[in-house]
Write a protein that binds this DNA or RNA. Sequence first.
DNA 1: GTGGTCACGTTACCGACGGTAACACCTCGC
DNA 2: GCGAGGTGTTACCGTCGGTAACGTGACCAC
Lengths: 215, 215
Amino acid sequence: MSSPDRADRADRREELLDAADRVIRREGPRASMNAIAAEAGITKPILYRHFGDKNGLYRALAERHSSTLLTRIHEALEAPLGRRELVENVIDTYLASIESAPQVYRFLAHPDPASEGLSPAGPLAPTLQAIATELSAAIAGQIDLGPDRALLAEAWGQAITGMVLAGGDWWLEQRDYPRERMVQTLADLLWGRLAAAADNPAATNNHNGTHATDG
Amino acid sequence: MSSPDRADRADRREELLDAADRVIRREGPRASMNAIAAEAGITKPILYRHFGDKNGLYRALAERHSSTLLTRIHEALEAPLGRRELVENVIDTYLASIESAPQVYRFLAHPDPASEGLSPAGPLAPTLQAIATELSAAIAGQIDLGPDRALLAEAWGQAITGMVLAGGDWWLEQRDYPRERMVQTLADLLWGRLAAAADNPAATNNHNGTHATDG
DNA sequence: GTGGTCACGTTACCGACGGTAACACCTCGC
DNA sequence: GCGAGGTGTTACCGTCGGTAACGTGACCAC
């Protein structure tokens, strides 16, 4: 048949993805198909033959990058650690990844929504959605949350993903905020430090009666 | 001079915003300028005369809607309540708002990024960013967080905003998940319930040593 | 060799978009 | 009557995502 063909095609596809990668690293997630084609030394229709449409190219590129991130997060979630260390590890894994290639990360986390008009309600990009699903599964599997564990784990998976996403985005733009400290900051938040901290002595407009951390 | 002119202009502007509002409610945040102009019974250049560019229109529309949301959240943050009740109140305010007009909310929370090419790093839409700032200010003002309170409050403001954003997006698509329960779900997360909950008895791959909720 | 096929590549185009230039009208103050 | 300044229009530009149509070279059957 075409066994050499298939290998060639796969290689070519990887080359095109490499080119798209370079352009996106350089110009951000809004890179045009023309720019990507030019970077690859070809013209648009070839890209469309390989990937169908822009969404297809983006999905291929996202899968390529997100698979390593997802693998790392999955491993971190399965590590034989205490809960706090595990959570810190997962957060650190995420932050380290986005720190090492911010443009690629932005592409994964904040893709051009014009390209994915399919999911009209998706606030979390597919990669983030996958992370949220991993998280939910880990929570449901490892923690005893009572009868409505399924929904609780799902909601928390989404919420924690959004929390780390927004925190990570903010952190990326900070200077002099060590990663390890950001990990602690986020883990502390999940550990109820906000709820447990004392009132500000200077506070005037708040009759506080802080509850304990829940029963 | 043109005092009637000015009033007319302001009225007209409001009418145009009304039209844009209707289109966005109907078609989502990706409504085109042509569609908005048509809904208003006019043509594009008039929109551009009033709002400069698409970003200007979006900003005007966002301010109009977000001001009420921001006001409500601000009030909730200043209410004389215990911390847990206050947090529940703020979350409920947000969820109630997005529940009452999901399309408008999506426009506020997930605007078409093509329109705001200015902030290349902004994951949180301006309205959400404003909410995060409110949150940070409230945290820094009301809670004693030690020496690095400023940064901690800022990071937490962002993180909590992202958490409630992602949680809210997910919740909007759920059926049969009462708002009050979602409020509890998110507040519980902030109160460290994830950290404090017992291990799942069926868990096998996790040597757990759950720390207490912080000291 | 000749003809057919098939993938690779091109140029040239389409429709929709954001945005703008140029022009027409209508209504004032004088 | 007549300019000024507002409201509105049509018609256009550049860019984008996406596609149709065409050319070219390798390979294979005969």
